[in-house]
């Protein structure tokens, strides 16, 4: 119970707050790294698509309440969890650490791109052309999230997963 629900929920709250008050300020060309997307990708890849989606839904509720765009944030986060779930590595799989990390990065890329696409279609606060938002902002957002996930993996996850 503690390992499967309580800890991830506490982590989710911590990561959401870190995103709203920390990472959202680090912008490059209007794009900032998204710690929640990385967390959702991690949950989806290592615990399954349904759980990833459910955490995405919860992250959307939390993030939406803080940002004011409840509906669209909820939809974006749910889809991020769903997309990353396609890279699910089952607990009993014999995948090596390298394979697991690759699946995590692929999950991050899928989640980032899908989230960016959904958000771009619904909101455009900086008035950028749609294709620019989808491809340039989407790619930049993927790269930033990849860098973040790489850092988090190297610092924390590698040790946790190998245990």
């Amino acid at each position: 119970m503690t390992k499967t629900i309580t800890l991830p929920v506490i982590l989710l709250i911590a990561v959401s707050l870190l995103q709203v008050f920390g990472f959202s300020r680090l912008t490059l060309l209007g794009v900032s790294p998204d710690a929640v997307t990385v967390f959702l990708a991690f949950m989806s890849v290592f615990t399954g698509q349904r759980r990833g989606m459910t955490f995405g839904f919860a992250a959307g509720l939390l993030g939406g309440a803080l940002s004011g765009n409840m509906g669209i944030v909820l939809l974006t986060r749910t889809i991020e969890g769903f997309m990353a779930g396609y890279c699910h590595v089952p607990e009993n799989s014999h995948a090596t650490m390298t394979q697991k990390s690759r699946m995590l990065y692929l999950g991050v890329v899928l989640a980032s791109f899908a989230g960016n696409l959904v958000f771009s279609l619904a909101k455009n606060p900086l008035g950028e052309p749609l294709l620019y938002r989808i491809f340039v902002s989407g790619t930049l957002s993927c790269l930033m999230n990849l860098l973040l996930s790489f850092t988090v993996y190297r610092l924390f996850l590698r040790k946790t997963l190998s245990e």
Binding site: G60, N69, G71, I72, L74
Partner: peptide, 21 residues
């Protein structure tokens, strides 16, 4: 297809929230 059904459920709730924002 429970993952798709769950997606539909969550997506539906999200769309409702967008509608009644």
């Amino acid at each position: 297809h429970n993952a798709y059904l769950l997606l539909l459920l969550y997506g539906g709730i999200a769309l409702l929230l967008i509608r009644f924002e």
